[in-house]
Design a protein around this nucleic acid. Structure first.
Lengths: 221, 221
DNA sequence: ATCCCAAATTTTGCATTCAAAAATGTAAAA
DNA sequence: TTTTACATTTTTGAATGCAAAATTTGGGAT
């Protein structure tokens, strides 16, 4: 199946930031690179446009979606809502085994925190949030969440992670795990919202890399 | 722009139920009907597949997405979450003018209820929910909501609307309007969730039209 | 009569081709 | 020197063509 493959690869290229936000996407160049003709490429671009990663301009080609501050705020809001929903549902459905897995991932993440390994910390952090969404057992939710987080990650923003913020984030994660273990859906929902609200505030305060030139010091993956 | 046009028309055909869930979508036939070649048609089908209205089977063509009971439950859950989020956000941002508009739409809907005009009642009901989502002022949310509700509407389910259920729905709508006017985001969020949960229970209890033969007595729009 | 397998037909997936629109470059006039 | 009009080039959007895969059809064996 060429089509899916192509969508995935272009998505990766966009998430990787190889084509910066707002930049034109040269069809021919991508065709040469992916060794395909324009037909499947254009199909893939249409799909990615539907996902919000690409914007199509009539007779003027496609560009990598450019996210404004407002777009980021909107995405974070929705992400928050989806995570809160996921938390509630997860508490109703999560198995003990799944909780154990998340607890293990949490412990690992805390270890990275102690070691000061921000990259690995972020990786673990993301894994935990995705595990919670998965535990909600709702593929529709999983799909929308993936789409929204992809778009957020697309904006290679930089957060100046201060010790205070990091410590608070870890504390919040302790609370998240705790609520999960108690299967306190409402509580988890509130914690998750606050957690993401804090992150959003940090991001929007710091601004994020919108321009092509500015190289991010750290990409949150 | 041919592409957008085509996506819209096929989406309409699917929502209209002309191609029943699970049925094959004959490319050639649609091409003849829409007077286009296969290229833009296939691009449109890919987009609709990304939206979840169409499912593509490798080398076996595309089918109108078939929704299982589980799918419906998942969609309702997410819809609930999105509406609850929209309610909270709307309360923070809605203008007096927008509230007045919704109040007017509400009064109109109640009038249809009194007249026993279920079709018009549903139309007004949908308009109100969409207005609340719009009032949230979050295009990302609006887009996801549109996608989810389209998929729900796609399943032409039938709800035996009893007088009791109808009365409760109207009561809940009174409460929704009330919370909006008081700009009570948390309250509105809870009411909206309960509102949709009730609807979901009705729908899932009744089952929905999955087979081609069964003609729905009433399509919830 | 039923089942199974192979040939023919249809349909799908992708490449190529063609026409139209936009971008670019050039030259002439103000 | 700047601006505008025009021609050329590039790129996009859609149609067509072609090979591979799947479905259908027909014939033979059980």
């Amino acid at each position: 199946m060429l089509h899916e493959e192509v969508v995935g690869r272009i998505r990766a290229i966009l998430l990787e930031g190889e084509i910066p936000p707002g930049a034109r996407i040269p069809e021919r160049e991508l065709c040469d690179r992916l060794q395909i003709s324009r037909t499947p490429l254009r199909e893939a671009l249409k799909v990615l446009a539907a996902e919000g990663l690409v914007q199509l301009l009539p007779h003027r080609g496609s560009r990598a979606a450019k996210l404004t501050d407002k777009d980021m705020r909107d995405l974070f809001e929705v992400c928050q809502g989806l995570e809160a929903l996921a938390g509630e549902l997860a508490c109703e459905r999560i198995t003990d085994a799944e909780i154990d897995e998340i607890a293990a991932a949490h412990a690992e993440m805390v270890q990275h925190y102690r070691e000061g390994d921000l990259i690995q910390y972020y990786r673990g952090n993301r894994a935990i949030h995705e595990a919670i969404v998965t535990a909600a057992g709702n593929p529709v939710l999983t799909g929308l969440y993936a789409s929204v987080t992809a778009r957020i990650r697309r904006a290679r923003y930089v957060t100046p992670m201060t010790p205070q913020r990091w410590a608070r984030a870890v504390q919040e994660h302790e609370a998240i795990l705790n609520a999960l273990q108690r299967r306190d859906g409402v509580g988890l929902s509130h914690i998750l919202r606050a957690h993401l609200r804090h992150k959003r505030e940090e991001v929007l305060q710091a601004g994020f890399a919108e321009t092509e030139g500015s190289e991010p010091t750290l990409r949150i993956a």
